[in-house]
Design a protein around this nucleic acid. Structure first.
Lengths: 179, 179
DNA sequence: CATTATTTTCAAAATATACTGAAAGTATCC
DNA sequence: GGATACTTTCAGTATATTTTGAAAATAATG
């Protein structure tokens, strides 16, 4: 069994399974696959190359490429003398992480904060025991969600080095680690 | 506009919107709604009460209640003299958070670590430039995913006080905060 | 400005996911 | 052990999401 075969297999595996994982990350399968493909491609790829590699339609490829551009996970590259657009992925793992973190905070946490604030507000004046309990519960949730939002915000703006140091110091992980 | 009306409105809002949010959390809408309902219910509720409140079928209520029990987010309560089961939610916000964190780590991070380990392995021996680049990329991803997994693990076993202190100290959040 | 290359859109089709309701399965009661 | 109360299962249905493919829009070329 040759190293090259293993390698080809690993590439295919990475693309297809990264796609499957995408689903549980709140990202569509194809979007994750396109991202995976570009992450391991030495050169920027065109829409047609993505279609070819992943066996997907033009519309699908197009939509997901543009969505990834919207997230900031890939960018458009124009090659001299070429008319079509090529796409290149951000490969720095920490950058990818912070981008995804920000997006998830925006979609998963911030709306919850809004909802909870409204609930806290509208239960301020209630006098019944049930009402007070509800108010308290909402307050605790809101406080926590707000806290999580701030933590997410801060972390997403940290550089990799400080972030690792930070986690390391407090959590006592990582035997040896570049800073 | 009475306080009671506001309160009723807030309750309904909380349940329905918490459900909608659930979707972006990788939890089904109904499961999140049932959880919301139980979180704000002063007393444990039966399957029939959940069906009634949320206007859902018995099968649906049953499945989601049992799923929530599986997660550890709610528990079964048996009332004296009553034959049916009642369900009661964990209301401590930090506990809810750690439960969800552990589950998401298990479903979102750990499988990625496995995948990446396999890819690192199968690209060890490749000699081409492309192969080496792939190997490096996989190694960086794997290292990061492993790191994230450990952080998740640690945090999920922290108590609320230490967790806040920790975040506060390093991130400089929270003007004043109970410990 | 006509031709060709490329991107964008979107209605219809395919697929994946969630829900219903009724029937089958268990446990409890008398 | 039969009747009753409750729980569980699951095939069929409904809903939501994703994908296709072809047509429309836009941009570049000569």
């Amino acid at each position: 069994m040759s190293a090259t075969t293993d390698f080809e297999e690993a590439k295919d595996d990475f693309i297809s399974q990264w796609g499957a994982l995408g689903t549980s990350w709140g990202i569509s399968r194809t979007m994750a696959q396109v991202h995976a493909l570009l992450m391991i491609s030495p050169d920027p790829l065109s829409t047609d190359q993505c279609m070819e590699e992943l066996q997907i339609s033009r519309g699908n490829a197009h939509t997901n490429l543009k969505e990834l551009v919207g997230w900031g996970l890939i960018k458009i590259v124009v090659k001299k003398g070429e008319r079509k657009e090529f796409f290149e992925a951000e490969k720095d793992v920490w950058k990818v992480f912070t981008i995804v973190l920000r997006e998830r905070k925006r979609r998963e946490i911030d709306p919850a904060v809004e909802l909870l604030k409204g609930c806290v507000d509208r239960s301020k004046a209630v006098k019944t025991a049930e009402g007070k309990a509800f108010h308290e519960q909402m307050k605790e949730l809101e406080e926590f969600a707000m806290f999580a939002s701030k933590v997410g915000e801060k972390i997403s703006h940290l550089k990799y080095g400080p972030a690792v140091k930070f986690a390391d110091k407090f959590l006592g992980l990582l035997p040896k680690q570049k800073n």
